[in-house]
Amino acid sequence: MSDKSDLEVIDRVLAGDIEAFSAIIEKYQDRIFRYAYSRVYNYDEALDIAQEVFLMAMEALRSFRREAKFSTWLFSIMVNYCKNYRKKRDRFPLVALTRSEGGEEYEIPIPDDRQTPEDDVITGDTLRIVREELYALPDDYKEILVLRDIEGLAYGDIARILGIHLSNVKVRIHRGRELLKKRLAERGLL
């Protein structure tokens, strides 16, 4: 679904067809969940966050100015929500306790067709280590690598989403990748 069709859906929602919003949910749910999961490392908590992000977006839909892509606007809500969520959660360490327990329960689904002969074989164990090391990075590096290397967003979009300058996007990507590469090398993956 292109941004044009996002806008069509939004028009329908604003005209009162709330059910049309399901197209937006279906399209973006995994991406928002993934980002939330990278921040809280707990499956259920990440699901709750994803749901809240969609509800906030729907509430704020009238304020979407259409100057940027809808996805950029939605991801900005996501990033800010997660930031505030973390702040709030850090004030209530009880919730943080359940986080580390829940983090281990979620196995990354690995379809068989990923392990093609010409590819490097990326096993479940490899992905678990990559995930562990990525999530262990400082927040600034982790969030930008999630947006860039997992979600494949353009530098300009990332700058808008995070509200930082393009040159800062580059620097953070450099440093994040450099640190991750060092850590993955230490784990014997590179």
Partner: peptide, 29 residues
């Protein structure tokens, strides 16, 4: 190689997508 491995984390997703979408839409309504 590293960027490729990281991009494989795209496999992380919601287990029951339909259920999530339904529940979220109900709350939105």
């Amino acid at each position: 190689r590293m960027v490729k491995m990281v991009s494989c984390l795209r496999l992380i997703g919601i287990r029951s997508r339909d259920e999530f979408a339904r529940a979220t839409l109900s709350r939105a309504i």
